[in-house]
Design a protein around this nucleic acid. Sequence first.
DNA 1: TTGCTATCCATAACATAGTTACGGCATGGT
DNA 2: ACCATGCCGTAACTATGTTATGGATAGCAA
Lengths: 244, 244
Amino acid sequence: MSTKDRLVEAGLRLLESEGPESLNARKLAAEIGASTMTVYTHFGGMAGLYEALLRQAFVRFGQALAAVEHTDDAVADLLTLGLAYRDFASASPQRYRLMFGVTAPGSSIAPPHDLTEEGSPGGIPEASATFDELREAVQRALDTGRIDGDDPVAIAAQFWSMIHGFVLLEMSGYFGTEGGGVTTVLAPHATNLLIGLGDDPAAVARSVRSARERFGDGAGPPHPGSRTPDVRRGPRPGRTSGRR
Amino acid sequence: MSTKDRLVEAGLRLLESEGPESLNARKLAAEIGASTMTVYTHFGGMAGLYEALLRQAFVRFGQALAAVEHTDDAVADLLTLGLAYRDFASASPQRYRLMFGVTAPGSSIAPPHDLTEEGSPGGIPEASATFDELREAVQRALDTGRIDGDDPVAIAAQFWSMIHGFVLLEMSGYFGTEGGGVTTVLAPHATNLLIGLGDDPAAVARSVRSARERFGDGAGPPHPGSRTPDVRRGPRPGRTSGRR
DNA sequence: TTGCTATCCATAACATAGTTACGGCATGGT
DNA sequence: ACCATGCCGTAACTATGTTATGGATAGCAA
């Protein structure tokens, strides 16, 4: 593996294991047994390295989302995509924060380096794949008549707001540390949103069950070091079906 | 005003005007005509100063949310709260990021200083007022029979995910720079969520109109320096009422 | 072979940031 | 009068990004 790739690899690893404050030139160089100059030889500086990390993070995120299979049930696909999204963020919170600027680009606080250009949207082309995946899933749900609407982009943005807000609040610990937020908050939220978009409550419930089964019940595949003991518990959430 | 207060004041001002990278001891001290030592005399270091900034930011955020009046229409109140929330974040994006990004408990990204102790939820008591306001608004909507459910906390968390995700994506530029995201994404999302929670589509539409009128149409009161030219435009969003 | 060039890398120094050591000065209590 | 305490400044220390400079190697040409 090239020195360049080894630096990116070490960067992603260090970011997750020791936090963003450890993403400095000296520690990074030591990690691959080189001097700090390698950062400048290959990336022109820390900003270039951050951009490479960002790019690689988005590539892997895109792969994780693209791995979700398409079935007859477009809504279940959409929900499964959400679970995959949440799973990625949950497994790599620092990486997720880096990607979406809660830690970096848009403005934010973290690397004193300013990838401030535009943030991720324009700067990192790989980022758009994330939203494309979501938009297409929404389009399929529209095409199969499960939900109503004429602007898939606007609807996808609603789902994105939901999942993005959820994962950030969840990783900030606002939903407890047991990982039950999926059952308590995310699943009911998605259910309510889908009902509001015109899907049938019973059909939504079926799709939710389908998605959670496909994804190992939303706790996601076991990540080494991720503690998500039991999701099926706690009080019944907001309201998941039926009308008044 | 005490030196301590002047430092916090200058910190909040510098944060918004020049970005978080300007929040350093030397620039801060120069701002109030003192030496860097004042930071250590009054706050014990930059971490202490950050915590003071965080606390003050949450106090003002809480005040902004508490200023939303209670009316007969609990759902309109809830929506107005959301507009006030978005307005605060939109007017002070750096402050909002500081509050919810850097603050993270478990993982935290933080300025190189680590308030990592516990983060905001436990660490900053003022932070809980934010969610309380939201939870109570949801409770009133439940009490007046507008929406169904037995767990106001879970429902409030759904609204919080929605608005938190929205403002972060919006300030990252994913919804365009014209501020039209409220009409295109946030309002339809809230509408769909409320319908999913059992409210009547027509009643939701009335409450949405009411809230936007109360809040100057969701663009918020004009902030000096905030550019939100025209919100009424663009394509019709996802679907805002009716059932199939 | 010899020499030239380009690339990669290391050593060392520089600038800036947070931080600490230390001393001065004022205020207030004894 | 004397000292204790608190606030503040100067200067130095450390860590980090960055730059200057030179060496080593590979590839190519004469």
